[in-house]
């Protein structure tokens, strides 16, 4: 999951700044949602792999990992 290193915000108007801040908050919301949905699923799969002594492939679609673990 990538963090946010957005472009420089020099010389922007108050409205543009507000718009950028809102957009950043939306990105955080999406990031947090992703962390608690896809992330939870991934963490569960990883723990399952760990318990079974198998490998969770980080470059594999989690759905594929789920099928493999079934």
């Amino acid at each position: 999951m990538r963090t946010v290193d957005n472009a420089a915000s020099a010389n922007q108007s108050r409205w543009k700044k507000l718009r950028n801040d809102t957009s950043l908050l939306m990105r955080f919301a999406a990031m947090i949602l992703y962390y608690f949905t896809t992330g939870r699923r991934l963490r569960r799969l990883y723990r399952e792999c760990e318990a079974r002594g198998e490998v969770f492939y980080v470059d594999e679609d989690p759905a594929e990992s789920e099928r493999r673990l079934r």
Binding site: T3, V4, A8, A10, L24, F28, Y35, G39, L42, R43
Partner: peptide, 24 residues
């Protein structure tokens, strides 16, 4: 990032929020 605990991630988000004002 996804296996990081929330106690870590919340600081990452807090950092990114502060850095929205890195330039001006």
């Amino acid at each position: 990032g996804l296996i990081s605990p929330w106690s870590v991630l919340r600081h990452v988000i807090g950092n990114a929020w502060q850095l929205r004002n890195k330039d001006g």
